[in-house]
């Protein structure tokens, strides 16, 4: 009766929820190891193996790149030019490592749905963590680079600094940044996951070959776009606090 809202037939095949695998007690709280953790570990393992292989290859790099070295140089050059083009010459070199790291991590997480995993970014815990890192980076950069007077003036921005009537509204808009960043990516990836689960669960008899087109859209295209958007917005928000040269 509980599931009567869904359709009557085939509901037992639909499965896109996060499952707990193992629970333990810490400080009186029950904490679960879920499928998201396992998927994140798999993604991390893949990235680590890739990094070790890349490191070994680049130790004996050749003047004229071939094969694997070509791919590595292409990745690094593209990410470098993306970060430098958005953040400028001053802030760019400071943040290129971090932005490249989260770019590769989010991209591999988003397209891991292709390989049968439940994408780790379809768990709000993962995306909220990424959004909070961005939030703290923005404000650390702000307090490091701008004088306190300027920050106070920005916070009261449409009104003069001695009349902080606008302060609460600006504070809310600052807090909305990590929430909207994380919810955007979470909802996008989750909607793709739910769609694919519905297709495979309800149309399991006729779901042959043609879901590949849906996979190409929901996993590859949507995942890549969301990765790009997340990194682009992170770079713009952080770059606001540095002067562009």
């Amino acid at each position: 009766m509980r599931n009567a809202v869904l359709m009557e037939a085939g509901t037992e095949n639909i499965d896109f929820m996060i499952h707990g695998l193992y629970s333990y007690e810490i400080f009186g709280q029950t904490v679960w190891i879920t499928t998201s953790h396992v998927c994140i570990l798999i993604v991390m393992l893949v990235l680590m193996i890739f990094a070790v292989a890349a490191n070994r290859r680049m130790k004996r790099a050749t003047e004229v790149p071939g094969g694997f070295q070509n791919i590595l140089e292409l990745i690094v050059e593209k990410l470098d030019s993306m970060v430098m083009g958005t953040m400028g010459k001053i802030a760019g070199p400071k943040f290129v490592n971090y932005i490249s790291t989260i770019f590769i991590f989010i991209l591999v997480s988003n397209i891991s749905g292709l390989f049968g995993l439940r994408p780790p970014t379809a768990d709000y815990g993962t995306t909220l963590a990424l959004g909070l890192i961005t939030f703290f980076l923005i404000h650390i950069a702000q307090f490091k680079n701008l004088p306190l007077k300027q920050i106070w003036k920005d916070m009261c921005s449409p009104l003069p600094p001695w009349l902080p009537l606008w302060l609460p509204i600006n504070l809310i808009s600052e807090i909305a940044v990590p929430i909207s960043l994380s919810l955007r990516m979470f909802a996008n990836v989750l909607s793709g996951t739910v769609m694919m689960a519905l297709v495979y669960g309800l149309l399991s008899k006729v779901a042959i070959i043609w879901p590949a087109a849906l996979h190409a859209y929901f996993d590859l295209f949507s995942g890549a776009i969301q990765t790009y958007v997340f990194c682009m917005l992170t770079m713009t928000y952080i770059g606001q606090n540095y002067e562009m040269e």
């Binding site: 955007r184 996008n188 909607s191 776009i225 958007v229 917005l233």
Partner: peptide
Amino acid sequence: AVAETTGL
């Protein structure tokens, strides 16, 4: 992608 957020 930013405009899509409200729909999401």
